[in-house]
Design a protein around this nucleic acid. Structure first.
Length: 239
DNA sequence: CTATGATCATGA
DNA sequence: TCATGATCATAG
């Protein structure tokens, strides 16, 4: 070990992450121009431009692609409860695509709040607000392609059509009804046609305060709303 | 600990 | 094969 070294300790190693180096876009036009510049580039090229290194894979850095692209586009919300581009009211989501060019994973939207009893109407829901203006950024997500060599597709701004909103609303109201009744702990990902509720936590031992069917407090695993791939597939198909 | 960003990995 | 349930990094 003497005179040896740990690879992860090399002094000139660049970080995987950074934040807030790029100024936020001032308009949707500017945002879309930045998107045009990203389209057709590889993740490695974008990372290089920002002075970041690329992880070997996403097993340990699952959110790396999303963080990279937010950084590259100048998202400014950080971890605040705001859309990624605060001034524009736009939320960015990467859309991982499989070999067929179809969405591969469900899309996390927001956490399911067990506490917020005040926000039970669809119109005021956090989920609706989060999805009201989304910048979808398609990215190749085929595990046989090295992360740095995966291509970014053409991003697009999306607002749900009234039909799409109706579909989401139906699922949301159904799921929220179950939560209000105190059935949060036994909701499974099988419920909901386009929207589902799944665990969202560091691991399954994490608990938060929920409400039981008897109306008492109860420790439950944190959960989040996710768009099923059949939903994102349909909005991609409409593009 | 909770928010952000998601993908992993195993069972059906 | 693929969706459900589990998990991982970072910021504040």
């Amino acid at each position: 070990m003497r005179l040896g070294y740990h690879a992860h300790m090399s002094f000139d190693k660049k970080p995987f992450f950074l934040s807030g180096q790029i100024t936020p876009p001032k308009s949707k036009v500017e945002l879309l121009a930045r998107c045009d510049a990203l389209a057709g580039k590889t993740l490695g090229r974008v990372a290089e431009t920002l002075g970041l290194s690329v992880p070997d894979d996403l097993k340990v850095y699952k959110g790396w692609v999303g963080a990279l692209l937010e950084t590259a586009l100048g998202a400014d919300a950080g971890n605040r409860s705001e859309p990624d581009f605060i001034g524009l009211g736009v939320e960015m989501k990467t859309l991982p695509l499989n070999l067929l060019g179809l969405p591969k994973e469900s899309t996390y939207v927001c956490s399911v709040s067990m506490q917020q009893t005040g926000e039970l109407r669809w119109k005021e829901s956090w989920l609706r607000r989060k999805l009201s203006h989304v910048l979808w950024v398609p990215v190749e997500a085929v595990n046989t392609i090295p992360l740095a060599e995966r291509y970014i597709g053409q991003p697009w701004l999306w607002q749900p059509s009234s039909e799409q909103e109706a579909l989401l609303r139906r699922d949301w109201e159904e799921l929220m009804d179950r939560i209000v009744l105190g059935s949060q702990s036994d909701i499974t990902a099988k419920e909901g046609e386009y929207l589902q509720i799944r665990p969202k936590a560091a691991h399954s031992r994490v608990v938060t305060r929920g409400v039981s069917e008897e109306g008492d407090y109860e420790d439950i695993n944190p959960k989040g709303f996710y768009l099923r791939t059949r939903f994102t597939q349909s909005i991609l198909a409409q593009e």
